[in-house]
Design a protein around this nucleic acid. Structure first.
Lengths: 166, 166
DNA sequence: GCAATTTCGTTCGATCATCAAACTAACCCA
DNA sequence: TGGGTTAGTTTGATGATCGAACGAAATTGC
């Protein structure tokens, strides 16, 4: 009973962990090389990816942290002149987070190392290999995501799935 | 409707990010459900995986954090009776980190949710699909790990080296 | 054998991330 | 108009993380 098909499950888990580990360690170096913390860089990246504008709420949701945390991250980024806040015109409760020129610089100065490395390797693959890899990754993502974990930038009205029910 | 024939590279990156995101958010819930922080849980898990004994140095290396950080994590775990430290006999500079019964409990009480979810899905796949998925994951892990995982410098706009010399 | 060096872990001081709870301001609905 | 809801902040607390300085043990050089 040593190496049954069980083995494959384990191996795939190990591979998955290697992927996670590599990217995690990477993201730290990456942020550091831009003089930022991982969390701060993520705020900038997400904002940049959203066309340079985002609300704290959206950031909190997408990052999976509380709004209070986002406030504190924004405070720091603003203090360093990487982002700025502006009241929304249409809904004056909301703030629009905008990147400054410095902020945009920081984002492009810190190219996503994971992305770079991965992309260059991916594009060296043969066509059918790419297709295969893509299918596999999507499958894994599905397997992990199961339910709709919110990948959408837009806010969905409705309650927040919180395990703590009051 | 959703996607125009987007580039495969992009799509695979998106899938990869979904994987990372899912696992990251997951690991937080997971640790919390065990009354621990993610970092603390990882110390316990790594120690458990090493047969219940590890040195701070080894933990620091594997986790990718400084030794000082490990010291502080161990202080907390020890204070809560989840782990304990013992001087090594063979090399009295070293400490052996050991799990207490509580510590072992905590590890098994916090089943790796990611693992659970993934495993059950994986094992539902057809045999050839499993093989395919495994191959793909290992490939991606390779792509990310690349032999020279050194803290690569910043930018390097444009050209990207390909040290894929097997 | 002994001084110099390296390795292992800790302490200290500082910065940052993170949260919950309480709070303000704005929106919305009836 | 007022009650309920939503967006964001403030506050106070805990924890993760690091670098630098440190002590102790091992290793190396000679």
């Amino acid at each position: 009973m040593t190496d049954a098909p069980r083995d494959r499950t384990d191996q795939s888990l190990i591979a998955l962990r290697r992927i996670l580990r590599a990217t995690e360690l990477y993201s730290r170096d990456l942020a550091q090389s831009a003089g930022l913390t991982p969390a701060q860089l993520r705020v900038l990246q997400i904002t940049a990816a959203r066309d340079g504008s985002a609300t704290p709420k959206a950031l909190a949701t997408q990052m999976g942290v509380s709004q209070a945390t986002v406030t504190s991250l924004l405070d720091r980024l603003e203090a360093r002149g990487l982002a700025k806040r502006e009241r929304s015109e249409t809904d004056r409760r909301q703030m629009n987070v905008l990147l400054t020129q410095s902020g945009r610089n920081a984002v492009s100065t810190a190219p996503d190392a994971l992305q770079q490395r991965y992309v260059s390797a991916f594009e060296k693959l043969k066509d059918w290999e790419q297709a295969q890899l893509l299918a596999s990754l999507e499958r894994v993502a599905e397997m992990l995501n199961a339910d709709d974990m919110d990948a959408s930038p837009v806010l969905t009205t409705g309650e927040i799935k919180g395990p703590t029910g009051t």
